[in-house]
């Protein structure tokens, strides 16, 4: 079991904050899908906005914008920078 020291889930990052990914807890097709978008350990992610009802949330990753739902984002572990 991998432990993510002092990491927090991506879903808890406030709008406007930037963080760095330390690990993915997702599995199956979503894990690969997310990796294909460049969401891998070491990548910087900026939380840019929430949808009108608070979910999903849009993030900037490697120059592109990707929206993720809260449940999915909570399985991505990050460190604030």
């Amino acid at each position: 079991m991998i432990t993510y020291d002092k990491s927090i889930p991506l879903s808890q990052i406030a709008v406007g904050c930037t963080c760095r990914i330390v690990g993915l807890e997702l599995d199956g097709i979503l894990r690969r899908r997310i990796q294909d978008l460049g969401i891998i350990p070491g990548t910087a992610v900026e939380c840019i906005r929430r949808g009108p009802s608070g979910d999903p949330t849009a993030y900037t990753i490697r120059g592109t914008t990707v929206a993720l739902r809260k449940e999915d984002a909570s399985l991505i572990h990050v460190h604030l920078i």
């Binding site: 979503l30 978008l37 999903p56 592109t64 990707v66 929206a67 993720l68 739902r69 999915d72």
Partner: peptide, 8 residues
């Protein structure tokens, strides 16, 4: 299930 949506 999950959703990954790109916003171009």
């Amino acid at each position: 299930s999950s959703m990954v949506l790109e916003l171009p």
